[in-house]
Nucleic acid binder design. Structure first.
Lengths: 248, 248
DNA sequence: ATCGAAACGGGTTGCCGGTTCCGATTCTAT
DNA sequence: ATAGAATCGGAACCGGCAACCCGTTTCGAT
């Protein structure tokens, strides 16, 4: 666990870094974690630098972009979720484990805006990290379904969507709604039992991702209203530069 | 300056406006509607001006801020929802009406980013407009609960939160999830029937007398002077027993 | 103690989008 | 037709932010 944390960025980094650099890197990461946790992706990078007692240049020395910093700050939490799910995969009553786990993930995530941003897909945490979480959750789901604790027509895609929905609900539940209420409601909807609604059938799997205008890679769903055109800040910048050059 | 502000107030506008101004106002509103619909609050104001074939200054002549423009562009849809709900309040089978209405609102809203932004509370639509919608929806809910088509421990706050959640789920359901699937799931969670989870109790709402102190269900408005505290005899008894136990 | 390289910091640049300003244009009352 | 007010258009302004740059400081091997 500690090792994993250390290796969150370049594996060779912590070893060969100068002492002050190593310290500053840790300070930045720490500050980033707490800042992102409180305010999500929206925190200005300068704010993080200020909290760390460091210049913005230093931040950029250690992390090539805000995006990378965010990833480093958030991914270990997701990895923790994943590990926990894996450990739970062979333990206890499948249904109980499943519902407890789901509730816990939601409870822990709601308070953490960064995790919300990551899990709600406003941001691609790390290639693989999110996918691994999904896989681990799928195992718990399947097991609970086999134990007849979860209705059989629910897929892992449904569950991920439901998870996001719970986050969004719990996040901005009105003043008159208790913590965890929406999660409880959602859990009930997963339980087998008397049902009226037949779920609409899912489409045959088919990718309809948009492509980055620069590198052709997959584009994450837009954060703001406007459709995202680029796969990340780097490509966006590149496009800007090229537009500027074209004007000159 | 103050006069300019005044003249941009929407209400009395169309009557005394110069012909070109009236036309431009309509163009702007039209462009705003379609732009916001496609991309939500995120659209730059310049984009709207361009679509309307108008300068940004003109937009600001008619609407004091982007916010006001958004409100003007969106509120009539919400009003439509509200009116529909009111019409349905005395028609047909309460349960069917309720679920159909809910699904329809979600279906219609998902395609409309502006409505999503408004209903999900990223933005205050218009003072009153949103509140009216809420009230109208509450009527349908109460009616469905009285007909035993919706579980009694669900409040209008819950429902609003659930509505937002469905929007967020349907909006970015993965490629492998069919349209309406999450809504169907959510509707199932509202149905009465075998349940394991007890919903966490809501905080003692200040002036919300419509909630049962025990089960959280809706309380019929008091006929006598004293406000009713429980949804029925069963809950009143239960409360008595618990108070007795507490004293012991 | 010294010195070169690594790291620092924060000033600077470029971009973006909302809002304002003002000279040019268009409408309408006369 | 004309004057003058209403309206228009879009350039300019402004605050915010990510990312870059470079003169200065610090580290640590010798």
């Amino acid at each position: 666990m500690a090792e994993r944390r250390l290796s969150s960025l370049p594996s060779q980094a912590s070893a060969s870094l100068r002492s002050d650099a190593r310290r500053n890197r840790a300070l930045v990461l720490q500050a980033a974690r707490s800042a992102f946790e409180e305010a999500g992706l929206g925190v200005p990078l300068g704010e993080i630098a200020r909290r760390a007692g460091v210049g913005t240049g230093t931040v950029y020395r250690h992390f090539p972009s805000k995006e990378a910093l965010f990833r480093a700050a958030v991914s270990d939490r997701i990895v923790l979720f994943t590990d926990t799910a894996r450990e739970l995969a062979h333990v206890g009553d499948p249904g109980t484990v499943f519902y407890r786990y789901l509730s816990a993930v939601i409870r822990l995530t709601v308070r953490n805006k960064a995790l919300c941003d990551a899990l709600e897909g406003r941001f691609e945490a790390s290639p693989g990290v999110e996918e691994a979480f999904r896989e681990a959750l799928a195992v718990l789901l399947r097991r609970a379904q086999q134990a007849d604790a979860v209705r059989k027509d629910v897929t892992i895609d449904d569950l991920m969507a439901l998870l996001m929905g719970c986050l969004s609900m719990e996040q901005r539940r009105g003043p008159g709604v208790a913590q965890g209420r929406m999660t409880a409601l959602a859990c009930d909807s997963l339980r087998p039992g008397r049902r009226v609604t037949k779920l609409p059938a899912n489409p045959p799997a088919e990718r309809n991702e948009t492509q980055c205008g620069v590198c052709g890679g997959a584009v994450a769903p837009a954060r703001t209203g406007r459709p995202a055109r680029y796969c990340g800040a780097a490509c966006r910048q590149k496009a800007h530069r090229e537009r500027a050059r074209a004007r000159a």
